[in-house]
Amino acid sequence: MIRSLPSSKRYRGGFTLFIVLYFIFLFAPLVVTMVLAFNDSMYPSLPWQGFTLDWFFGNGPEKYGIFHDQTNLRSLYTSFKVALAVMIVSTFLGTCAAFLFEQENFRFKNALYFLMIAPLVIPGVILGISILMFSNTIGLFIENHMNVYASFLGPGFPLVVLGQSSFISTIVALVVSARLKKFDHTLEEAAYNLGANKAEVLWFITLKYLRPSIIGGAAMAFLMSFENFNTTIFLVGSQATLPINMYMQVRDGSTPVINAISFLLILGTSIFAVINLSKGNKKIL
């Protein structure tokens, strides 16, 4: 049954087979996507036509590799900008929230805490449309009453950043809170006794202690923003982010350049995941 108990060969063998199949199920789509990035064919499918790096470095006239594909490069750049901004905003908001809920006491604290974790169980599509509608209403109001057209309230970069931050901040807050809970407050008292003021204690003692979790939370925020689709699709303007751009190509039929992008992203996220996991950060949400 379990490690310490004897079990029949058939039971053990059957169970192992099940797990092997499970892992094949888990990795088959990723492996296939990665391998086909190197197939010398116009379509992401078999038969194997020979090895090529054209889908990475090709510069026409037939095959434009990712490094010469202007549309995809531009969306990659947009995604980087968005992810960087979301990372900054949500790390700040999330860290503030962690301090607020772990160290302060005030009226309606529980209600506010409930509001903070709600975005985790609100479907991303709903967050997207409600923020779109709200900012549109404010934009109309400003236009009607002040005669200014507030373009930043329409779909586009600022709205995407705000929309993604609305729920990614919660994740950062949970990651930072988990570490702040274990903080030994006598360290702060010692610093006060030695003459430090509040800002100094915060900067030199508490934030220093929280640094691993803040960095971990920020990294996760970056990745989640980079991959987000459901919320972004409603808020994005003319500048598509990478997932949106890829989605349109996948939907309408694609060349293996999508496989090349996927190859790079899978490689990047796997390295990131292994580093993050080996540091004992098992939180996945």
Partner: peptide, 30 residues
């Protein structure tokens, strides 16, 4: 760790992988 890694990869890429595997001109059919 092996179980967690695939889920860091974006949903779009994972779905795309299944499309390559399953469609009419896909790997499994081949």
């Amino acid at each position: 760790i092996l179980i967690l890694v695939p889920f860091w990869v974006s949903e779009l890429i994972r779905v795309y992988g299944w499309m390559i595997l399953l469609r009419e001109s896909g790997i499994l059919n081949h």
